[in-house]
Design a binder for these strands. Structure first.
Lengths: 244, 244
DNA sequence: TCAAAAGTGTTCTACGTACACCCATGG
DNA sequence: CCATGGGTGTACGTAGAACACTTTTGA
């Protein structure tokens, strides 16, 4: 039984590099930054995420997740939030740590690298900025190019987590503006999970859960009865955000 | 909007220290290492976990989670497994990454520190080693001493995860020997969740889930009908282990 | 033959699904 | 007045909770 050294949080050794990467999901990408050839008028409600073109080796020229090194005086959450802002120009509607990746050989040339991955949701109530943001393009989650490092694995884990949370929580509402119709919410829900829900049952289930409540106002559009608008029920929703 | 630097996995900066800490759960601690005054004959089935007495500043003399620095040539999972082995003398029945903690000011004196936390389960089919393991004591999970750093937060997150997995998966069986009775499994299940399940319903639910299957043999003990022994159903249980 | 735990059967309720049907609106 | 989506009502099936009951053993 080797390794007599137990415990110890602070021992100083040759430290690996620590980076934070982030998988950002949105329902509608900024039109100016849609990657060529990926739009599909047949499917208006799809999952999109932004990628960054790498400028340096290794993987120069390849697409990668947005990210950056962990700054000395910033928490993991802060670095993730700053990366998101620099990539999209918007703060997240939901930001959550995903998983940490630290296998050896993740980067062939670079020194040892540990990546702490986050995932985030953006609402579509503000247009995403496109000016002043270079080397970024948005791709549909089901039509991604080859990615640098093991970033494809990270995206897959993020998709799993997003679908799991969508199935049991109201996470889908965070894609939308503060006020939304239940039909909009159902479309997002179905787009994420790949299902087709019954509108009546979706409505009842959601109302019974107490996660949303009507705002009182209506939205009229098209030749049919206007839809009631809903919002998140504010207040104590346990464990929406993990600790940091 | 500051921070023009996007992307980049490999940029070299002053790296923080990276450590791996682990929360190890077991149902029965090694008798020789039970912390004084924590045993309770009234409750034979309880959750226990090992702590390590710190030798260095900061927090010298305080109890802390087992852990160690991330070695250059080891993956996160490997370091977690090695720490577990050094602390308990046994390999884990279940080992899973928990969360990464990287707030600033976690360690007042040490340089910046990022801790990647794991949690593990030990089976009680082998006696835990006590010889050659120093500075380690086992405590009941509901009667822990004050812990160094923010390790108390880590334990709380691990408890939440353990309870969540116990509620929807057969994770409780990993505390037991390969063959077990449903009554044993139910006791573990209830000890972890703090519930008292109906034996009949527990039996039916578990059998219907297909997660366990009878081995064919019986166990006779006490003045009552012998109990059938069960085992994990081997094979494709999706997502028992997250990626690394 | 009795206590004790293993194991089975039965009922009740909650909740999700399927689907028929009514409501309100613009054209 | 009709097509369209919003919204309600209702019947069915499955799964868990509660609990009465039978089975098998050691003493």
């Amino acid at each position: 039984m080797p390794m007599p050294s137990l415990n110890i949080d602070e021992r100083r050794t040759q430290s690996p590099d620590v980076a934070v990467s982030i998988v950002v999901f949105a329902i509608q990408p900024p039109a100016a930054l849609v990657a060529p050839g990926t739009a599909d008028p047949e499917r208006p409600v799809r999952l999109w995420l932004p990628l960054v073109r790498r400028l340096r080796e290794p993987y120069a020229g390849a697409w990668a997740l947005p990210g950056g090194p962990l700054a000395w005086d910033r928490s993991l959450d802060q670095v993730a939030g700053a990366t998101l802002l620099a990539t999209t120009g918007l703060p997240a509607r939901h930001l959550e740590q995903l998983y940490s990746f630290g296998a050896t050989g993740r980067s062939a040339t670079a020194p040892r690298l540990v990546t702490i991955a986050y995932w985030a949701l953006l609402a579509l109530d503000q247009p995403l900025a496109a000016d002043g943001i270079d080397h970024v393009a948005w791709f549909p989650a089901d039509a991604l190019p080859d990615l640098a490092f093991d970033h494809r694995d990270i995206v897959d884990v993020a998709l799993d987590r997003l679908r799991a949370k969508t199935a049991y929580a109201d996470i889908a509402a965070r894609f939308l503006a503060p006020e939304f119709t239940l039909a909009e919410l159902r479309q997002v829900h179905d787009a994420v999970l790949g299902t087709t829900s019954d509108p009546a049952n979706f409505r009842r289930r959601l109302l019974a859960s107490g996660q949303v409540e009507p705002t009182g106002s209506l939205r009229r559009e098209g030749a049919h009865r206007p839809a009631r608008l809903f919002q998140f029920t504010p207040g104590p929703h346990p464990r929406e955000q993990d600790p940091a």
